[in-house]
Design a protein around this nucleic acid. Structure first.
Length: 274
DNA sequence: ATGACGTCCTGCCTGC
DNA sequence: TGCAGGCAGGACGTCA
């Protein structure tokens, strides 16, 4: 599923491919993915807009346009943004297709949970409220030792849930939260306010390193995640916890456990993670 | 304000 | 072989 490293990879690959092109046609194959505005307005506003920039905030991919608008994608579990030559057809599960000057940009989303938003500069739709209260980026300077300790110490929820909270750790999802907890040697069921200051700092460092490694290896392809050319990432080969339930821990050999925590599958090593 | 949990959505996997 | 049922999970809404 596209988390921060996957969306960052898509952003880096997409930017040189589409920047400077105009949107010539907009084909909506599934209206559900258009979250804002209404789908008629969405189409009308997009036509002949020029792509000026591509950026990423947390798990959101943002295509900036001229006139001044933002086309925001959230890929959720299975979304992909695929670039294809003009003379090819749409692939299976294409929900939105944008015809640019030199290529198609396809929003492919098998599970139809992903969403697209087109915002004029004054728009602040309720359906994007999470976007407006995202925490600092975990790889930024603002995600400091002090910031993280303050956030963790005042919470008594389970640490795994805290890592998934976008108001605290923007861009982190199920894969990288499990991997960060493994690297930090912390049991995902621990209560946040019971972590020591040393453990919290260890976790912050682990979170940053695992996200950086994810980006370095072009993301994790465990199910649907694909890059703009349809190819997979490589980080799934380097996972220690996520998706390894029943297999031996790569550090100590104990069997990796799977536990449902807050309605989310969570993997951990019972020996390495205290 | 916080935390716990249900809901959305559909392809795919499992088991009968 | 075919079908039903369960599962996956990010964000949001609801409730205590």
């Amino acid at each position: 599923m596209p988390e921060l490293p996957e969306v960052e990879t898509i952003k880096r690959e997409l930017e040189p491919l589409i920047t400077g092109q105009k949107i010539k046609e907009c084909v909506v194959l599934r209206k559900d993915v258009i979250a804002f505005p209404s789908f008629q307005n969405f189409r009308r506003s997009l036509l002949n807009n020029k792509i000026t920039n591509v950026k990423r905030i947390a798990k959101y991919l943002i295509i900036e346009l001229d006139p001044d608008r933002s086309l925001i994608f959230h890929l959720r579990l299975s979304g992909a943004l695929i670039v294809r030559p003009l003379n090819t057809g749409f692939e299976r599960f294409t929900r939105l297709a944008l015809k640019l000057d030199k290529c198609w940009l396809l929003f492919v989303e098998p599970r139809v949970l992903g969403r697209v938003y087109l915002l004029n500069s004054n728009d602040k739709p309720a359906c994007l409220k999470g976007f407006y209260r995202l925490s600092p980026e975990p790889l930024s300077r603002a995600f400091s030792k002090r910031y993280f300790q303050n956030q963790i110490k005042k919470r008594k929820a389970i640490i795994k849930a805290i890592l998934l909270n976008q108001d605290i750790c923007a861009g982190v999802g199920n894969i990288y939260s499990d991997e960060a907890l493994f690297r930090a040697g912390i049991r995902p069921t621990r209560r946040a306010n019971n972590l020591t200051y040393d453990e919290i700092e260890k976790l912050r460092i682990a979170l940053r390193s695992v996200l950086r490694d994810g980006i370095k290896h072009l993301g994790t392809s465990v199910s649907d995640y694909r890059r703009t050319d349809g190819k997979k990432g490589n980080f799934q080969k380097m996972l220690f916890a996520y998706g390894r339930e029943g297999e031996p821990c790569r550090r100590c050999g104990s069997e990796i456990q799977l536990k449902k925590i807050g309605n989310r599958g969570t993997r951990y090593c019972p020996r390495c993670q205290k």
